[in-house]
Nucleic acid binder design. Structure first.
Lengths: 148, 148
DNA sequence: ATACCTGCAAAGTATTTGCACGAAA
DNA sequence: TTTCGTGCAAATACTTTGCAGGTAT
């Protein structure tokens, strides 16, 4: 996996390329995305930034995550019954295991998706840009907690 | 594929089993779900019912889709940047091709997912209840429209 | 008769937008 | 200096909830 620093560099380069100004808030948001090994939602990102920027607003976080997403440098993982979750440390589509109880998201390794992808393009006539493969269920911890 | 009538029967039976009253509005919502070959959102369901029930409220549609979903008789397809979409005519998880421009959703046939599923359970310790595999891109029509 | 449902309006969430001031280039 | 970005507050969109009257069983 690319290092957090590499990811951050890449994001800031893309911001420059696209003539976005490198404000401290924007950089802080990019850093949180690049460094996160979990899959934070907007509010979590906001809370991680607040210690360094006590006056930052939620709107700024929304705006900048959207900017970075529009450049394709962060992926949104939408899970039913909760706001968007974001993954900025890797950009290749890969499967997730989502716990429906505690909302934990675990990254899985991609598996022969390419063959599948080609056959979908052929069958549907779609030009496929990305995909998602997510498994839903209960993680080990929640299985135990439920019994107790 | 199960016929719409079979699907509707199954849903009404499950409603009875769970002691839900069979109100005309509830039945109308179940029928729309059972008959839809597309993937309507709440408002679309509402609009399809309105001709027969001009005074039905959006809240009733929300409530009943939720009831039917809680019995596992309709699947929710969440796509980023739009409200929930619902699929009531088939219950087996299967892949979709989603057009990011016009939001059309096309059903695909499931493909050797079971092997993949087992290895995920083994690797993560999750108890997997369902999954989703969705491909995003541009449908043929939107590809042409974009060029024009 | 009873418990559940409905429509309406109000309240919640989550997210976006208008604006005046401030900061990056 | 110019253009863009920020924080704030208001607006929007989507969904849920409280309630009084109505309906299925």
């Amino acid at each position: 996996m690319e290092s957090s620093e590499d990811r951050l560099c890449r994001i800031t380069n893309r911001l420059r390329e696209n003539s976005y100004k490198l404000t401290p808030q924007r950089l802080a948001i990019a850093r949180v995305l690049a460094e996160s090994r979990d899959h934070p939602d907007i509010e979590t990102i906001y809370n991680r930034i607040k210690p360094g920027f006590p006056r930052i607003s939620l709107a700024t976080v929304y705006r900048n995550v959207m900017v970075i997403k529009s450049m394709g440098e962060v992926m949104e993982i939408g899970i039913p019954g909760s706001g968007g979750r974001y993954e900025g440390n890797r950009l290749d589509p890969h499967p997730h295991a989502v716990c429906e109880r505690c909302k934990t998201i675990i990254d899985l390794e991609p598996d022969g998706m390419t063959g599948l992808l080609e056959s979908v393009q052929r069958e549907t006539g779609f030009e496929i840009t990305t995909h998602r493969l997510d498994f839903f269920g209960l993680c080990e911890k929640c299985r135990k907690d439920k019994k107790a």
